[in-house]
């Protein structure tokens, strides 16, 4: 049996999520007895995939696919799955993968499990554990179709090195004009900033910070830690920060290793979005703030005093541990 994995790259380089889904696919293939084929789009050097257990790479080189296009990518992946006779397909839960997965599911007549947090409990029948109710619960889901699509939540599985000799094959799917009927006019992306989706660490600010002019210390902490910045919903509603930074049940879900919440009360809708973060730190001057019940570490104190001091200490720590 072949497991197909979509390994996303950006400007030719693999994203961490790509290596994570490759690691996951390797374990599924080992469990069910089979090999792993990765599909890449315009990747320059695919050798890294071998370190994470990929046996074969189907490399698609096509200028028309230099910009992500959901339908065209889904069609290409479908053709790759058919060529390989893949019964399981693994994707990440990046914005692009979430866009593709349902299209692919219909084309391959495959059942799709999103937000999967662990390896399959069994592969026959195929049962996976996924998070539901915005991380307030889990669901054991059985996929009954012949072809299965698994969307693995970011950071849920991690990277597992597993050296394999990845052979590389050029692959040219047949794409039609129809695949490009949604036209990408322009992409507006900050390339120098860590995104919430990719971040290992997230520094997040709430209404307790009083105003957008006070975000300097949040950005400073993020810079020291190589973190992404985020915020609570009212902060983005008031326009202090961009909407794309809003985390929570109605915003972005967070699955980073570390989440530092500053001046955020910890309303249930906010916590729902950050439950999947591994370690949570809260800095709040109200010891009764609900976030303290959800956090691993807490500092009861005024953010305007604590954060600048913490930033100094983090700088020292980083200087020592560089």
């Amino acid at each position: 049996m072949s497991v197909l994995v979509y390994t996303e790259s950006e400007e030719g380089k693999f994203k961490k999520a790509a290596l994570e889904v490759a690691s996951y696919a390797r374990e599924v293939a080992s469990k069910a007895g089979g090999s792993v084929t990765a599909v890449t789009f315009n990747a320059e050097d695919t050798s890294e995939l071998g370190q994470y257990g990929v046996d074969k790479v189907l490399n698609i080189k096509n200028d028309k696919l230099s910009k992500f296009n959901a339908e065209a990518y889904a069609d290409a992946l479908k053709q790759a799955a058919e060529k390989e006779g893949s019964k399981v397909m693994v994707l990440s839960q990046s914005a692009n993968s979430k866009y593709i997965a349902p299209l692919l599911a219909v084309q391959l007549n495959a059942g799709y499990a999103p937000n999967v947090v662990a390896l399959p409990e069994s592969t026959d029948p195929f049962i996976v554990k996924r998070s539901v109710f915005t991380n307030k619960a889990f669901n054991l889901l059985q996929i009954n179709t012949e072809v299965k699509i698994v969307g693995v939540s970011q950071n849920a599985f991690g990277l597992k090195e597993n050296q394999a000799d990845a052979t590389v094959e050029e692959f040219s799917p047949n794409l039609s004009e129809e695949d490009f009927s949604v036209n990408v006019e322009s992409v507006d992306k900050a390339t120098d900033k860590v995104t919430i989706a990719d971040a290992e660490i997230i520094v997040s600010g709430g209404r307790g910070l009083k105003g957008p002019e006070n975000w300097g210390m949040i950005e400073e902490m993020a810079e020291i830690l190589g973190a992404a910045t985020a915020c609570s919903k009212p902060v983005s509603d008031m326009g202090w920060r961009p909407h794309s930074e809003h985390v929570g049940q109605t915003g972005k879900p967070v699955a980073s290793n570390l989440y530092i919440a500053i001046g955020i009360s910890g309303a249930i809708q906010h916590l729902a979005g950050v439950n999947a973060a591994k370690t949570k730190v809260v800095i709040n001057n109200d010891p009764e703030a609900p976030f303290f019940k959800a956090a691993d570490y807490g500092v009861v104190g005024d953010a305007f005093e604590v954060v600048p001091r913490l930033n100094e200490k983090l700088k020292e720590f980083k200087a020592k541990n560089a």
């Binding site: 599911a105 889990f138 889901l141 059985q142 730190v281 303290f292 500092v299 005093e305 913490l310």
Partner: peptide
């Protein structure tokens, strides 16, 4: 195409560890 076998709730969280604001080295 899929069926729910079972729901589970996450394990209850341990207590938060509080750190004194004057001792941030500990954090």
């Amino acid at each position: 195409q899929t069926e729910t076998k079972k729901f589970e709730k996450p394990d209850p969280k341990g207590e938060v560890k509080l750190v004194d604001p004057d001792n941030l080295d500990e954090l």
